[in-house]
Amino acid sequence: MSATTEQTAEPTGRLSTVRVLATNPVTVVSAVVLAAVVVVALLAPWVAPYGVNAVDVANALQPPSAAHWFGTDDLGRDLFSRVVVAARVSLQVAVVSVAFAFVVGVAVGVVSGYVGGVVDTVLMRVVDVMFAFPVLLLALAIVAILQPGMATTMLAIGIVYTPIFARVARASTLSVRNEPYVQVARTMGVSGRSILGRHVLPNITGPLIVQTSLSLAFAILSEAALSFLGLGIQPPAPSWGGMLFAAQGFLSQAWWMSVFPGAAIFVTVLAFNLLGDGLRDVLDPKQRTLIESRRRR
């Protein structure tokens, strides 16, 4: 560990978290894979060898080759270029929708948990009602109300994942609320808002970070499902789900059309899930003690 010398400069808690994370090879690999996906998505216009909508009918349904790494689709478009550009779309939708769910959900959950009483009861019943709908069904209903498109997709997925953040934030707030340092702050007359900002929020970040990583995985799956149904990202913009829908008609002629976009979803979702699991092991205190006690046995 070469980091020992720098340890004094940083709060030891945070440093040890990163160090524990770095000792888990699965977490490291998934973080590296995700970083690669993000870099490719950001540099998509430069990485993609062909235009996403460059139609070349003469070369339609070509299997993977040196010229077309992932082959071509029924219009002769380069699948590698489309998968790369779709990564950007997918990540963008996932990040924006999870950010929405995070902000709204955490605000609702923290207020609910901290204030308690009637406010808590009402907010949590609303959350219960939202939990009564399966995720994709609720997203579809929202898309049915609004016009399908990128903004609607982001909003629909954002709304659907808000309740889970509200529950996680509320549960964490409840456990922090009665900690001595919060009670001391309250007796000293510190205002509710600054107790929330200075004491509660910083102490519930662990479970929220874990939830964020897992939600990003689910958001990518949801976007792919919506786009597959033709109700998410609209063509001609490329999306992994939309590409899979198009591939359905060519399953027997062009396996590559269904394999590569699906594999892109799979790898990205898997990386977010594994990272989330790795983060949970380190950041979620209850889980952490469990792991440590097991390691000791």
Binding site: G241, L244, V259, I265, D277
Partner: peptide, 15 residues
């Protein structure tokens, strides 16, 4: 099981 959790169901169906 971790792999299974990350597979989109419609892609699994297509495969």
């Amino acid at each position: 099981s971790q792999l299974g959790v990350s597979v989109p169901d419609f892609w699994m169906g297509m495969l």
